[in-house]
């Protein structure tokens, strides 16, 4: 079978991608239990499709929004693009360096100083020591943390940690930036700085994948969006339409919930 690569300008492509999680029927956590179950031939698995034959293509410079309720498959999709998760079926293509904005504190160590954490975090993003030396000053400048850079991270406030994390992840312009609900970083002035940096990346061709439950953010920032529902793309394209599709699903769902509550109360 001949596989075609990405066409020029295309940065992310998913072809018929399915992700299946295999969950043991009863959660088996220990070797002892497993050995007993295995002897009794009682190891059953239930498979759960987090994504079902999803196809999409994102071009350079797009801000692509992913919306959907919890468990719709948004995070799974981000993990595929970040190459953290391999697809069970189908094919994932991504061009260039992917920088995920990690949640506050992920990959940081509380006992190390800010300086040490910058180097640790940079190497997690795949940068060499030399590259980090070169980037260090710019990172601390941006995070505005010179005063505290040699203090252990456990003395930092959560806002300061988030600033440091954002500064490390976005120092060099990545080809793909993954933003998973973490834009509420620091105070208002710093949030503005982050938004400006993201905007300048976009102008220079960085593709941004954004997951958010805040529809205002999605409508303000995204150029295109997809609405995911139970692992299937319900709608892809115009942001306004995607948000409406999502809202319809929500009203339908809350309607069902209401009916269920009325049903139980009437009996």
């Amino acid at each position: 079978m001949h596989l075609t690569g990405l066409r020029p300008g295309e940065v992310i492509r998913l072809e018929n991608v399915s992700v299946r999680y295999r969950i043991p029927h009863e959660r088996i956590g220990t070797f002892k239990e497993y050995a007993i179950r295995w002897m009794q031939r009682k190891v059953h698995y239930e498979s759960f499709l987090a994504l079902k034959a999803v196809s999409l293509s994102v071009d350079s410079g797009e801000v692509f929004g992913l919306i959907g309720r919890n468990g719709a498959g948004k995070s799974t999709l981000l993990k595929l693009v970040a190459r953290v998760l391999p697809p069970t079926e189908g094919r994932v293509l991504v061009r260039g360096q992917v920088a995920p904005l990690l949640e506050i504190g992920a990959g940081f160590h509380a006992d190390l100083t800010g300086r040490e954490n910058v180097f640790l975090n940079g190497s997690l993003l795949g940068f060499s020591y030399r590259q980090m030396v070169e980037k260090f000053e710019r990172i601390v400048d941006f995070a505005e943390l010179w005063e505290f850079i040699d203090a252990p991270l456990r003395t930092y406030s959560s806002g300061m940690i988030a600033r440091l994390g954002f500064a490390v992840a976005t120092d060099t312009q990545p080809d793909v930036l993954i933003v998973d609900e973490v834009l509420g970083v620091g105070d208002e002035a710093f949030q503005k700085k982050c938004a400006e940096r993201i905007a300048s990346f976009r102008e220079q061709g960085t593709t941004i994948l954004l997951v958010s439950h805040d529809m205002d953010t999605v409508m303000k920032m995204c150029t295109r969006a997809a609405h995911l529902e139970r692992g299937v793309i319900r709608y892809i394209g115009n942001v306004q339409e995607a948000v409406e599709s999502y809202r319809r699903e929500q009203t339908a769902a809350s309607g069902e919930a209401e009916k269920a509550i009325q049903g139980t109360s009437s009996t």
């Binding site: 690569g5 190459r83 994932v92 293509l93 061009r95 260039g96």
Partner: peptide
């Protein structure tokens, strides 16, 4: 550099 899950 392109990451391709089908060609590892």
């Amino acid at each position: 550099m392109v990451y391709d899950s089908a060609q590892l």
